[in-house]
């Protein structure tokens, strides 16, 4: 199976938002493994909330879709959630993978974001689950989980652009 990498370059003009720089899958041992590079640009409001002890949750949505005539059918979907928080006492940024419970501490924000933005060989799907001779595509999106915010903040988050942080779906041939 060929490894198809999709590389997209974006304008570097700084604006709050998430971008998926690249995403690709690699078939290794009968398992599709996902590697992706994500750039997180948090808005001023979210950074301020983070500094004030509000944890931010980021959700990576991964899908495998079967290509059809009219619209694609999602045959498989899973998500990976990361929580980013600031630890005041130690002045560390903590990143917790909510799926695995793994936690890493970073002395600065850049390190934390870099860690979160790097997906390496994530086991996405067993090849045996797919029907042969069908065309499949992989899709990836990342967004700030507004519903994980404290309730009072959510009211603003629903309506404010500062909190509506999400990337577009990035798709590639599986």
């Amino acid at each position: 199976m060929s490894c198809l990498a999709v590389l997209l370059s974006f304008s570097v003009a700084w604006a709050a938002g998430f971008d998926i720089i690249s995403a690709s899958t690699r078939l290794e041992g009968g398992v599709y493994r996902l590697s992706a590079q994500i750039e997180y640009r948090f808005s001023q409001a979210t950074i301020e909330a983070l500094k004030n002890g509000v944890p931010l949750t980021v959700e990576l949505e991964m899908e495998v879709r079967r290509q059809r005539w009219v619209w694609d059918e999602t045959v498989y979907a899973l998500s990976q959630r990361f929580r980013l928080e600031y630890h005041t006492l130690s002045r560390q940024y903590l990143v917790t993978n909510l799926n695995s419970g793994e936690r890493r501490a970073f002395p600065n924000q850049g390190g934390a974001l870099q860690f979160m933005g790097k997906v390496v060989d994530f086991p996405l799907l067993d090849k045996g689950l797919l029907v042969p001779n069908q065309r499949y595509i992989g899709a990836l999106r990342v967004q700030l989980d507004v519903n994980a915010l404290p309730t009072p903040l959510r009211l603003f988050a629903y309506i404010s652009d500062d909190w509506q942080l999400a990337s577009k779906w990035l798709t590639w041939q599986l």
Binding site: E48, A49, N52, G53, V54, T88, P150, L153
Partner: peptide, 11 residues
């Protein structure tokens, strides 16, 4: 305690 207080102030 500090975190929750700070969060409260922020919120």
């Amino acid at each position: 305690a500090f975190d929750s207080y700070k969060e409260l102030i922020f919120l």
